[in-house]
Nucleic acid binder design. Structure first.
Length: 900
RNA sequence: GCCGCCAUGGCGAAAUGGCAGACGCAGCAGACUUAAAAUCUGCUUCUCAGAAAUGGGAGUACCGGUUCGAGUCCGGUUGGCGGCACCA
């Protein structure tokens, strides 16, 4: 079929779209299917979205910069879903708006292309994952380009490109070659430690990228480690998952806990995301306390020793409530705690071994899921409570986690719900040491009874020797000083944040640029000149069940030299996304991961700096957004970056639900494919609808009728300029004229400019669109139709529906004088307050807060006169019946409230 | 359990403490049409009275408070959504 509407080559001063009567396809309300590809091509071939760097020919340094970033997608096989264009359209509108306001705008797009789905495809087909990834990227790019986004495609990046992998590995080496200096709280070159004469092992123990033996969820048949969240899912599918101690690479993010926490304050981020990050980092203030294990163990009689004298091993605990030390009636060690074997009494060893075995078999998830049932085993050892010298039993229980604090606790069942539960179940003593009420002067009975449940709040110390009577905060200070004096403890801060497990047993990821010396067992970095280090081609990508991962199969590749072999683990997918925003600033640089000049310009050099606007979903609240901040800070410390934070302003777009209000999913069958929407209604309609649905940050359901609604609006705008003649051609509307608009229309024009401008700045796109609808409705009624107002509408509309705006602008430019360039290149209009001012305004009159009447008065009339007129208004006079009101509130130009 | 967010017509939603429901969807009526679609115009929170014009009352989950005035601010309750979850 050739009868799709298309531009006719005629001598006409403006373009004609012909469509035939015989077309079997229903006539489109406007020819979006012709004009959209046409303008996309035009923008591409004219470099309309090209963004220059400082130093480039034609770069205008006088313009301010603006960096608008989308969270780049993983190019999955199923293509774009309608959630992607939501954020992308929002940033596109801001980009176009800022450009029209004279900014140099950096608005790039790329691909977070390492990932498990491509690897699984490779396992299934034997084809290298690169090919499937390339196909998916091509599809994503096609889909994004069909939506007319103003990305600078010259800056497209792909995390799997050798030219990108090289710098990801280079950044890893920066971490590897650094340590964290506690004194200055900064990363420093590891060479400083070497210069101080530290041994090889001492240096390795301080690297920001280091090797650690860690218990992980290992699945032999999948041949990989799994995240805690994944364990359940794979078990259900019949795979085995076990806890296994494996040698893993980790990144020392914990050293940055304090800065990652503190620097959140200066960021313009949603409060909920900041809270998530704070919770994840989990800062808590408290104290370290040393307990001494009593030797000889329980049963022996002679024990005159005091804590502090040379006794058995010490157990360090962390507590946020040192003020409750007198109430510590037992201790608990994590089952994996290294001290357990040394202190356990002979009679308990068997029970301990059995308990430990049972715990080891549980995943972290199971361990927390079964949290309700507390279990544990007595070690048979006793510790001495330093506060009151009482002997208290030492237990092991899996409600104490090896990974937090010191892996040991002092149990205060009177004032901790978990300890209470454990003590109650196992019949351990419970002591009250905090009272809600100020202690009675006589210091009598009630305080001495154990409480009926754990009281975790603040109060007054009781049964606590020298602390008695002190409020909780004071008691904390007093006991901490007391511990410091005796060398039994000190105040400290603990974080929940763990070091970042950075290695994966996968093929499709960045190999570590690390080799191992076979004789010494030491690791070292390969020289930066050998980067990128790419994974070798494999015969097949199936897992081997070997915890070294699929790369272990490449025997030649592994062999680095006579005595050294390569690390075979790969980096997680996060690695590439940790720094992609930096690469966008200077994506083709082969000398540096980003040039200093480009980084300074786009990342803002001074003050807050960073990405000016970052839009994406909430799913990355703590992972990507925390990891990227961490890498950024390390690179900043090492002098490679000019700002301490990457993303100054963050906005989360809301989820788009299916038409039935449920989350879109294939199984429910409510997934909307953007390609279908573009085919039926056009890219401009899809863009406009996604912005019109509601506030950007809200969760909101899809509505096909709603798409039709905005589509109709765009068609109405089209018909403001063009109308179909009898031959079925679009011709210019005859009433279009260069005339002064009537005052009401002029006012509507300037009101729209004001509203749309403010709403784009506030990311309130839904109300911006409604303002344009109002202006368009006003224009529909105007005859003659003033071209000036139409031009304004098209310029305002251009960031939202760029194709339509461009086309109609060209139509008008061909017919009317003084219109040059593209709609998208126009200077953003300014509104003039004078056109918004009205001489007469209607004000409401209330009696006791209830609307009773309205009057039209001159604007800015003095309050006394407004009051006089208001009281004289028919309904008001009638209601008052001559009585004098007690009070009259006049809000100038708005409302009058009469209090009778 | 803890933390956070939210609650407005039949639906998506608007409303610097100042006329609740802009704009859109759906619906109804009219115009155009042989007819339908499309398009244009008007109506459209609920309720009571009225033939109508119009007029009265109620109304932003619920209860209370602050205020001349509350969808908006404060306290509590209920319901929904999201995140964290034995972190000592």
């Amino acid at each position: 079929m050739t009868d799709h509407p298309r531009p006719a080559k005629t001598g006409s001063p403006f373009i004609i779209y012909r469509f035939t009567e015989m077309s079997s396809e229903r006539r489109k309300p406007y020819p979006f299917d012709t004009i959209e590809p046409k303008w996309q091509q035009h923008w591409a071939s004219h470099g309309s979205n090209r963004t220059l760097n400082p130093g480039d020919l034609g770069f205008d340094a006088s313009r301010p910069k603006y960096f608008v970033l989308d969270m780049f997608p993983y190019p999955s096989g199923s293509g774009l879903h309608v959630g992607h264009p939501e954020g992308y359209t929002a940033t596109d509108i801001v980009t176009r708006f800022k450009r029209m306001n004279g900014f140099n705008v950096l608005h790039p797009m790329g691909w977070d292309a390492f990932g498990l789905p491509a690897e699984q495809h490779a396992i299934k087909t034997g084809e290298h994952p690169r090919f499937n990834t390339q196909r998916n990227i091509a599809n994503f790019r096609r889909q994004l380009q069909s939506l007319g986004f103003a990305y600078d495609w010259e800056r497209e990046i792909n995390t799997t490109d050798p030219g990108y992998v090289r710098w990801t590995q280079w950044i890893f080496l920066q971490l590897y070659h650094s340590y964290f200096d506690d004194a200055t709280q900064r990363a420093r070159p590891i060479a400083e430690l070497e210069a101080r004469g530290l041994s090889r092992d001492e240096v390795d123990a301080q690297r920001l990228a280091f090797v650690d033996e860690a218990p992980v969820n290992w699945s032999p048949d999948l041949g990989t480690v799994l995240a805690n969240e994944e364990v359940e899912e794979w078990r259900e599918k019949g795979h085995t998952v076990e806890r296994r101690l494996l040698r893993q690479w980790k990144l020392r993010i914990t050293k940055y806990a304090e800065r990652l926490m503190a620097d959140l304050d200066g960021l313009d981020w949603p409060e909920s995301i900041k809270i998530s990050q704070r919770n994840w980092i989990g800062r808590s203030e408290g104290a370290r306390v040393t307990f001494f294990v009593e030797v000889p163990p329980r049963g022996s009689t002679s024990n005159e020793g005091k804590p502090g004298s040379k006794m058995g091993p010490r157990i360090e605990v962390f507590t946020t409530r040192p003020d409750t030390l007198f109430g510590a009636t037992y201790m608990v060690l994590a089952p994996e705690h290294p001290l357990v074997d040394g202190i356990a009494s002979a009679g308990q060893r068997e029970a301990i071994a059995a308990y430990r075995a049972a715990c080891a078999a549980k995943s972290d998830l199971e361990r927390t899921e079964l949290a309700k049932e507390k279990t544990g085993v007595d070690t048979g050892a006793l510790a001495i409570n330093p506060a009151n010298s009482e002997r208290i039993p030492i237990w092991i229980a899996d409600y104490v986690l090896m990974g937090y604090g010191t892996g040991a606790i002092m149990a205060v069942p009177g004032h901790d719900a978990r300890d209470w539960e454990f003590a109650t179940k196992l019949g351990l003593p419970i002591q009250r040491v905090v009272s809600e009420e100020p202690p009675a002067t006589s210091g009598d009975a009630p305080c001495h009874l154990p409480p009926l449940e754990a009281f975790e709040g603040n109060g007054f110390a009781v049964n606590s020797g020298f602390l008695d009577g002190l409020r909780t905060p004071e008691a904390k200070k007093a006991i901490t000083s007391w511990l410091i004096e005796r060398g039994w403890g000190h105040g400290t801060i603990n974080y929940k944040l763990r070091d970042w497990l950075f290695s994966r047993q996968r093929y499709w990821g960045e190999p570590f640029p690390i080799i191992w010396d076979e004789s010494s067992g030491h690791h070292s970095a390969i020289p930066a000149t050998e980067l990128p280090l790419l994974a070798p081609e494999l015969e097949d990508y199936k897992p081997t069940g070997d915890p070294r991962g699929p790369l272990a199969k490449a025997k030649d590749w592994i062999r680095y030299s006579d005595h050294a072999r390569r690390e075979t683990n790969t980096m997680p997918q996060w690695a590439g996304s940790c720094w992609y925003y930096l690469r966008f600033c200077d994506p083709r640089n082969e000398e540096r991961f980003v040039s200093e000049e480009a980084e300074k310009y786009w990342m803002g050099g001074g003050k807050p700096g960073g990405v000016d606007l970052y839009v994406g979903g909430t799913e990355h609240a703590v992972l990507h957004l925390l990891y990227a901040r961490f890498w950024h800070k390390v690179l900043f410390d090492l002098g490679h970056l000019s700002t301490p934070e990457p993303f100054q302003r963050l906005v989360n777009q809301g989820l788009i639900l299916g038409e039935n209000g449920q989350k879109m999913s294939k199984s429910i069958g409510n997934v909307v494919n953007p390609d279908d929407v573009v085919r039926e209604f056009g890219a401009d309609s899809l863009r406009l609808f996604e912005m019109f649905m509601g506030p950007l940050t809200d969760t909101k359901p899809w509505s096909t009728a709603g798409v039709q609604g905005v589509h109709r609006f765009l068609a109405r705008v089209w018909r403001l300029v063009l109308e179909a003649n009898e031959a079925g051609e679009w011709t210019l509307v005859p009433t279009l004229a260069e005339v002064e608009p009537a005052p009401a229309l002029r006012k509507a024009e300037h009101a729209a400019i004001k509203k749309v401008t403010g709403d784009i700045e506030g990311l309130a796109f839904n109300t911006a669109i409604s303002a344009m609808m109002v202006l368009s409705n006003a224009l529909t009624a105007a005859s003659p139709r003033p071209v000036g107002v139409l031009r304004t509408l098209l310029v305002l509309l251009s960031p939202f529906a760029p194709h339509l705006a461009e086309e109609l602008w060209a139509e008008l430019a061909a017919r009317f004088a003084g219109m040059t360039g593209l709609a998208s290149e126009q200077v953003w209009p300014a509104y003039e307050e004078q056109f918004l001012i009205e001489d007469e305004i209607e004000i409401a009159i209330q009696i006791a807060g209830k609307l009773r009447d309205k009057i039209v008065i001159k604007k800015d009339l003095p309050s006394e006169e407004v009051q006089k007129l208001a009281l004289a208004a028919p309904k008001i006079a009638e209601a008052l019946a001559g009585k004098v009101p007690r009070k009259v509130i006049v809000v100038p130009n708005k409302i009058v409230n009469v209090v009778p």
